[in-house]
């Protein structure tokens, strides 16, 4: 089943008289249950593509169909709703609320779909257990290590059972040992049936995925399946 389908996606930024094409016609298809890495050098348009897929932004031109629905025609509220129910985002800089506990951070998506507080806490606790942080629920981000913070972010991304997990350079702020830990977590989540897209500029990280899409200057350069023997993950 096709989860993501883009048709000739363009994203153009106008800076004064100059036009910057962050994406120049991206067409791709991602099936449910895939584990995809988007690779490319800095400034190639990876984050831009990720933000479009994650409905944080809309394309200047082109079509984007998510789960059979045309996202390009959606208004702000509908996009927020998609972000809430269909997308789980993990960022390089974690993007946790500094003042809130891990539990409250993970609860956040549930607040905006009107879940009751008991339901919220139960689901957030469950998500934190999945990333093995059940014993750190009442810690604030400042009281957690980088890897733990990123796991809180993963728990937040998972809490609403989204269709896709999107991670933009999730290991960019982590040391290599912790990076491996986080990638193992993604491997495991994929094994459990989640669709995962990871943006990275590192080959090692990309090789955890089963398919690697390379981007150069806002265009897809290559799109290859990673042979089983080259994969870094356990599966």
């Amino acid at each position: 089943m096709t989860l993501i389908e883009t048709q000739n996606l363009w994203k153009t930024y106008t800076m004064g008289a100059e036009k910057v094409h962050a994406l120049s016609g991206v067409t791709l298809k991602i099936e449910k249950g895939e584990y995809v890495a988007i690779m490319g050098p800095s400034g190639s348009g990876k984050s831009t593509l990720m933000n479009l897929i994650g409905c944080l932004d809309t394309a200047t031109q082109g079509e984007y169909i998510l789960n059979g629905r045309a996202v390009s025609k959606m208004n702000d509220d509908e996009l927020a709703n998609i972000r809430n129910r269909e997308i789980g985002f993990v960022f390089q800089t974690f993007n946790l609320l500094a003042r809130a506990t891990a539990l409250h951070n993970v609860e956040l998506p549930l607040i905006y779909n009107g879940s009751g507080s008991q339901d919220r806490v139960a689901k957030a606790q469950q998500a934190l257990s999945r990333v093995e942080l059940a014993d750190r629920m009442l810690h604030k981000p400042s009281e957690l290590s980088g890897g733990q913070r990123q796991r809180v972010a993963v728990a937040r991304a998972l809490v609403n059972d989204p269709s896709i997990l999107l991670a933009d350079e999730p290991t960019g702020n982590l040391d290599s040992k912790t990076s491996v830990e986080i990638m193992k977590l993604f491997d495991e989540l994929h094994r459990q049936g989640n669709t995962i897209i990871v943006v990275t500029h590192e080959r090692d990280i990309a090789n955890h995925a089963h398919r690697v899409i390379s981007i150069l200057d806002g265009k897809i350069a290559t799109d290859v399946i990673v042979p089983r023997e080259q994969r870094n993950g356990v599966n």
Binding site: L56, A80, N81, R83, R85, N95, L96, L108, Y112, N113
Partner: peptide, 9 residues
Amino acid sequence: IRKSVGARQ
């Protein structure tokens, strides 16, 4: 952050 997890305007 709130908007990224689905907060509406």
